[in-house]
Amino acid sequence: MNLAEILSILNARMLTDHVPLQKAVESAYCADLMSDVLSFSVTNSLLVTGLTNAQVIRTAEMAAIEVIIFIQGKSPDSQTIKLAEEKRIPLLVTDLSMFDTCGKLYERGLRSQFHHLNQAPIITVRAQSL
């Protein structure tokens, strides 16, 4: 699923500059606990979160998360946006709730790739194109 599709599905706005809209992700993860993101997320995924501090950007950077979506119209401050731009992590904001954000993405074919590091990975379900 690419950024143009995500923007349209969530009626979202882009907060960072110079982002290629064809940039795509294969899976999604949703959490407000950054420790959970660091423990359980996978690469080439997007993060849906209600937290807007700089640690979210750092967490995404370390966990090699490609895109961050903030929910319920919450935007981080300009310094945090700048950090994301430096790290080339696109930030999106939607007015939808976390439940609806995840629901809409799921409905359009995006899946999590949740697996515990000690367990065998679950078979990947690739997102369908629009």
Binding site: L33, M34, S35, D36, L38, S39, L51, N53, L117, N118
Partner: peptide, 14 residues
């Protein structure tokens, strides 16, 4: 801030 959920040290080990 999204930290302090008790996953840090176990995650370093993993």
């Amino acid at each position: 801030m999204g930290f302090g959920s008790g996953m840090g040290l176990p995650n370093i080990k993993k």
